[in-house]
Design a protein around this nucleic acid. Structure first.
Lengths: 144, 144
DNA sequence: CCAAGGTAGTTGACTTAGTCAACCATTAGC
DNA sequence: GCTAATGGTTGACTAAGTCAACTACCTTGG
């Protein structure tokens, strides 16, 4: 466990985070995966109004996003309405049920984040985020 | 992009890391996935002598490990020999080809890690690792 | 104004990652 | 020496992600 590379740290961390997320999700009995939750969140927050927004925001493949949105729709959490600005596209909005689920999702998020940060002070949290941002910058450089 | 939770940062970071890893892997034309590489590494390092060691070390399901090891064997990179201490178990060792691939794997790792750390000074790298450790501690607490 | 190229979204087929349960063979503990 | 635990394998499954092909629409340059 002692000397682990940057790469290994990230793998281990992500695995723990996903596990914790799963725990909290089925503690509340939700039928959602982590990605479904992320999609709900970006729509609820107003950051994404169309499927393409979600694709951009989460940097995911549009095929994947289509399927995530469809399963949220068949679960009755999401509705698509025609986009007046572009007939190829539809506007996304949470249904009443979707908004209800969001309050549970917020509880899950809060618990996971609390657990992640319980050994950190606020300054360390900021520090962590800015280190992540710096690493991401490094990884982005030279692409595209 | 501005205010992102701890949770979101981790998701985004992991996604970037995996993408970079894929890029480097098929830049070298290797037929390996990130998990195969991690398994090769822990065996090459001497940290894991049996399948069960790998299970413990990487915190992965034993079914998954069995399959990873098998595909490394059919690729001729890994050999199993009977474990004299336990007839249920086999000792893992890289073949000649496996050791050859490891030198390429090391190159990949180095490139990815270099890219991740190009905007960081050595102190920040240490800092990041210790923050990851602290977060992991928080997530582990209360389990088991 | 209209053809050509680009964009939004969908679908099919696929790979990788991970999980759960059942099962064998062996080993360890009383 | 029987029972319970352990190491490993297999089957069946879900989640996550990728690539290519395709439809329908939008945009632009001649």
């Amino acid at each position: 466990m002692s000397d682990v590379t940057l790469l290994e740290s990230v793998f281990r961390l992500f695995h723990l985070v996903k596990k914790e997320l799963h725990l909290q999700i089925d503690a509340l009995g939700l039928e959602l995966s982590p990605m479904h939750i992320r999609v709900l969140k970006v729509i609820a927050s107003g950051a994404c109004r169309t499927a393409n927004d979600v694709v951009q925001w989460l940097s995911r493949d549009k095929a994947q996003v289509t399927r995530l949105l469809n399963s949220l729709m068949t679960q009755g959490l999401l509705a698509k309405t025609p986009n007046p600005d572009d007939k190829r596209s539809q506007l996304l909005a949470l249904t009443e049920a979707g908004r209800a689920v969001m309050t549970q999702v917020e509880a899950i998020d809060e618990r996971v984040i609390d657990k992640m940060s319980q050994d950190l002070n606020p300054q360390q949290i900021t520090q962590f985020k800015s280190l992540v941002a710096a690493i991401s910058r490094g990884l982005d450089a030279g692409e595209r």
